[in-house]
Amino acid sequence: MKVLNKPVDMIAVFYSSGRVEPVRFRYDDTPVKVDRVLKRYSEKLAGNRRLCFVCINDGSKVYELKYEVDTQVWYLFKM
């Protein structure tokens, strides 16, 4: 996987329970549907909170999405 940290347009569900679920994002003008979230965790490096989602598409393509809480920007972090 390569580190990209590229901001992306995202459609996500913010549940009333506080749970966040990425649904669909745009990568190079192509819409990508998030198949499955394998793992979720949050990080607080340098005091900067990010929600991280390790996702998988087509059964083998693993990538990582991150939501930065302060700036409210979604990143395609690794692919």
Partner: peptide, 13 residues
């Protein structure tokens, strides 16, 4: 170190 960690978080190598 704060700057270093922040840069790493943003994907700098």
């Amino acid at each position: 170190s704060w700057q270093a960690v922040y840069n790493l978080q943003r994907g700098h190598s």
